[in-house]
Design a protein around this nucleic acid. Sequence first.
DNA 1: TTTCACTAGTTTGCTTTACAAACTAGTATT
DNA 2: AATACTAGTTTGTAAAGCAAACTAGTGAAA
Lengths: 112, 112
Amino acid sequence: MIQDISSQILKGILQGIMLLILDQQPEYGYGLGRKLNDYGLVAIPKGTIYPLLTTMEKRGLIEGRIQSSPAGPDRKYYFITAAGITAKNEFTNEWRQLENVVNKLLDKESKK
Amino acid sequence: MIQDISSQILKGILQGIMLLILDQQPEYGYGLGRKLNDYGLVAIPKGTIYPLLTTMEKRGLIEGRIQSSPAGPDRKYYFITAAGITAKNEFTNEWRQLENVVNKLLDKESKK
DNA sequence: TTTCACTAGTTTGCTTTACAAACTAGTATT
DNA sequence: AATACTAGTTTGTAAAGCAAACTAGTGAAA
């Protein structure tokens, strides 16, 4: 069963996760929401996803291009930029450090 | 060499980390800053640490008791409460899920 | 044919988080 | 007396997450 992950714990990490996904292949907002869901992040609200994509585009990390859908409204596909790849790599490093810190603490706890 | 972890990536996670530390033993704000540093989290500013401790106390997760220092100003030691332990366990679960999602993506990336 | 469901995106306003900066104050060393 | 280190509070700002309200296209059922 997939429990939900509180918004708090996601703060700031969502951008990194999105960069990792977009580095695999371009995606549009709605599809990204579904993909996030598939990865185990239950129902990231669109009030979070869309504004974040807009902000990331302003930062030059991704680029949106509107493409028509085979069925339904147009989609805005986002492509990762060179700056986005740099940011993705920075995120990866920071993530590994954070993971290390938390896991050291969890280890300590399990040995109590 | 320890790189620093950007504030963004820490958002919301710091509370969980602090609960894990305080579950080991009571600490005061200043000492917590040093401990965080020792764990590899470079220089978490006191403008972050102290207000967060206050908020956590308001939430009933920890309790502060002033104790005199052998040398220097008084210290406010924080003790984890029963509610704090519950919150710590919730954080642990959420952390493991998040870790799983990010690592799945990092795996995918390494296989590109 | 109009109503519903699903898809797709934008914008507004609110709450919380992180934090720099300014402040107070005790102890210790030079 | 001045400086450095320790210890904590308070204020104001920016950014993040998100609910909610809105627009709008497609397709199927009624």
